[in-house]
């Protein structure tokens, strides 16, 4: 499946319009959207790796690093400036990814999935062990300031929503540009036939390394925005079940557009909150059944429905 991403900025523009309109949603729904946008960025990180045929079952690692970077700075170090904590979250994710990347980019297929999972579980184990960081209970993240300005309690939701929406649109745009670039196009070649790619003079490992680091950056950003939105971080962010959820969304939404995982995550959260009301005991069952159905009937995800629609 070859997808032309050069036009994907149009989708991102559409997303921007949608998010601006969503500012006027009822506050509970807008909050749901806000947390979903944060999670959606991680799903986006999973999605771009999937384009190279790599499934990260441990993307929660960077979600967690991003969240804890914000949490540690704001709650423990007293630095609550939004620009600084978010930058720190993205930078720490990238640094860790730069270190782990050379090891992980050697692996493909199931081994890549297993190893990403293992690394994420090690972080989970460390955090559960860390009593000073609240262990499994995690800790609370104080509200962030905007260039030194701390909005009143009532207005904080508005401010953080705008921040989240802006950064998500920017991130989606940059990812779309990346996928449209030569480096992005290489990903598909990695998935299709690595050996031929090498014969043609490109390095598959380099392509994988790059996508891994970019995915880490966008996932770290997602974790940071989630921590700011909910005001709480805990080790569950790094657990494999959380990562499984991101994979699920990436798969469900499809690989056709940078905005697909972001919208997909919101859809999923919306279904979840109502399903919990109606069938709290069968929620996972519904999720699993939908997942099977998508794999069987829509192997390219829900986004393929959008693309199939007449132009």
């Amino acid at each position: 499946m070859t997808i032309d991403f050069t036009k994907d900025w149009r989708n991102v523009a559409l997303l921007a319009v949608l998010l601006a309109a969503a500012f006027f949603l009822p506050s509970w729904l807008r909050f749901l959207l806000q947390t979903a946008l944060a999670g959606g960025l991680v799903a986006l990180g999973v999605m771009i790796q999937m384009r190279a045929g790599l499934v990260s079952f441990g993307q929660g690692l960077y979600y967690c690093i991003g969240g804890y970077a914000v949490g540690l700075l704001a709650a423990k170090a007293g630095v609550a400036e939004a620009t600084l904590v978010i930058a720190a979250a993205v930078i720490s994710s990238v640094v860790i990814a730069l270190i782990l990347g050379p090891l992980l980019s050697r692996y493909r297929e199931i081994f890549f999935a297993m190893l990403t999972l293992a690394v994420s579980m090690i972080l989970y184990g460390l955090l559960v062990k860390a009593a000073t960081l609240g262990s499994t209970d995690g800790f609370n993240v104080p509200p962030v300031t905007f260039f030194g300005f701390l909005p009143a309690q009532e207005a904080r939701g508005d401010w953080t929503y705008v921040l989240t929406a802006l950064l998500v649109v920017v991130a989606c745009f940059l990812i779309a540009r990346y996928l449209a670039s030569g480096a992005g196009a290489l990903l598909e070649a990695v998935a299709e036939n690595e050996l031929r790619l090498e014969y043609l003079g490109s390095s598959a490992r380099q392509a994988v390394y790059i996508v891994y680091v970019i995915a880490a950056a966008v996932s770290g950003l997602g974790g940071a925005l989630a921590a700011i939105a909910t005001g709480h971080v805990d080790p569950e962010m790094a657990n494999w079940t959380t990562s499984g959820g991101f994979v699920f969304v990436a798969l469900l939404a499809g690989r056709g557009s940078a905005i697909a995982p972001v919208l997909g995550f919101f859809l999923l959260e919306l279904v979840r909150t109502y399903a919990l009301d109606i069938a709290p005991n069968a929620w996972q069952l519904i999720l699993g059944a939908v997942m099977l159905a998508v794999i069987l009937l829509l192997p390219d995800g829900l986004w393929s429905l959008v693309r199939r629609a007449p132009k």
Partner: peptide
Amino acid sequence: TFVDEAADAPTEYRALVER
């Protein structure tokens, strides 16, 4: 109105209070 505490707590809490 009973809800599952195992779900994402802040989201479900907001839904309870605001929805």
